[in-house]
Design a protein around this nucleic acid. Structure first.
Lengths: 284, 284
DNA sequence: GAGTGGTCTAGACCACTTT
DNA sequence: AAGTGGTCTAGACCACTCG
């Protein structure tokens, strides 16, 4: 049985500045001060971005194998741990698959959207080369019904803001939003113009409010009278419903919404695997 | 400028066997042979499971803060890296949120299902305390249509197996599956009994076939004649449609399916955040 | 200013796949 | 047997949050 190791001197054990010729080198972000530039993104993000680009641009088609971790580490001048952190992102996005002992394989070449893109209807539309429109049909202070209160984590009957909003894509109505905002954000929402194109972007700019987490419940419902009217479909025809609740990074709920999409206009896609599975199927 | 460090002797630098009194200790899984037991799960998984349990059992309600990484590391006798790996899993599941500098916050207490649970209707039903039934309505060899061929990554017109299957929950029809299997797995599928409860489990047991990745496209459609007939709804009434393609760990497509759920019976849920976003919204 | 999470390194052993 | 990903450690510096 070997004796426990002596606490050998730690000085000069992890020599930061070596001849790497990088600015914001890993672990040693103090080298940042060399140039007066803004903060650089983390190394692992840069590596992930490079890989993502290579995949979406077709350098690694579906079925191709990625370079080994050792190769990537050498190519980017990073440690294996950092490379693994980068690859983990692609793994979570479902772009690549991984099995112990074998090289990683490209599963898909279509990247998933950023969370912001998902949340912001306008931003999403823009990314697809379309123009989004928005129109507030009604906006009223009220009290939270039991279900809404639960989702917003406020007591039942607490004051909230109800907003009914119609969203259009290239002029066509595609989405009817019934949103409930928590009281603390209500004034900021009411201050927005009725035809505000992107609520998300305005709240971020004006209030510094960042949406960080979301939960989406997806099912199908028949169009009610109001739905049919605004979305220009027949009453009773199928609509894709997404009930979502968004919270800040601290977990504070901001809004909860019942969104109804006209069929044929939008599809939701989830990629998952044995490693990461964000999708859940529940009883209604 | 400090000189590069001498490549100081690595002997006895990372002394594996210390007085930790653990069997499958981290990094040193050779200690496994002490007992003839089966393989233990990785440390980080065990830690993640413990945290998940604590959350779902209510020890950490929504809004509560988790112990710090240092505390968790000490409590589980693991390194910080391993703890971070564990917490990353909860992060990806959307159970907890994280901001630099602040303690992690519980966002939700309902765990997401395993990938297998999601894929297997029977397994999912069982987990919810219900009984699943299955019935093959038709099964026929045929050729892949252009769209199917693309999804299965085979040339158009390649031989495939089409199966129409009705799934019931406690006797009620809730799901109509139109599945296309790649040819190489077709014989195994045809060998299954018509009322096979869980195709997934049988294929895993009999063929050693593991589904590893999946892509789900979710939208709403009106019930067609066949849909209405089998699901016992009116023609034209809303159905939740999930088109999915599943592949093996190597990325080889196994099956693609058009699943239609009777409304009110099932809801799909996705949790996401700025860090990990598996959900995508696309134009139809 | 102490605490906490985010990032990074360097090295090690293992299980598994591939040649 | 060589290669590759999976797991783990121990230590370090940083940016950020909070009292």
């Amino acid at each position: 049985m070997p004796a426990p190791p002596p606490p050998d001197d730690d000085a000069r054990r992890h020599p930061r500045s070596r001849s790497r010729a990088r600015t914001g080198a890993g672990g040693d972000r103090s080298g940042r001060s060399t140039a007066g530039r803004g903060p650089e993104p983390p190394r692992h993000e840069a590596i992930a971005a490079a890989l993502r680009r290579a995949i979406t641009e077709g350098r690694y088609p579906v079925g191709a194998t990625l370079p080994s971790e050792a190769e990537l580490a050498a190519a980017h001048g990073a440690s294996r741990g950092t490379v693994r952190q980068a690859v983990a992102a692609l793994l979570a996005e479902g772009l690549v698959g991984s099995r112990q002992g074998a090289r990683r394989v490209v599963l898909s070449t279509t990247p998933s959207q950023s969370f912001t893109e998902l949340r912001s209807f306008a931003q999403w539309a823009r990314a697809g080369g379309r123009t989004a429109g928005g129109l507030v049909l009604s906006s009223s202070r009220g009290t939270a019904r039991a279900e809404e209160a639960g989702l917003l984590q406020v007591p039942p009957g607490a004051p909230v803001l109800h907003v009914l909003r119609l969203r259009t894509l290239d002029g066509d109505p595609v989405l009817l939003e019934r949103t409930v905002y928590a009281e603390w954000i209500a004034p900021a929402v009411e201050a927005l113009p009725d035809d505000c194109e992107s609520v998300t972007e305005r709240l971020r700019r004006d209030e510094g409010l960042v949406f960080a987490h979301g939960e989406h419940h997806i099912d199908a419902v028949a169009a009610g009278t109001a739905d049919a009217d605004h979305l220009r479909v027949r009453r009773g025809s199928p609509l894709l419903r997404v009930r979502r609740t968004t919270t800040t990074a601290e977990g504070r709920p901001v809004e909860t919404s019942d969104d109804r999409y006209r069929p044929g206009s939008v599809v939701f896609t989830v990629r998952n695997s044995t490693q990461t599975n964000p999708l859940t199927r529940t009883h209604a």
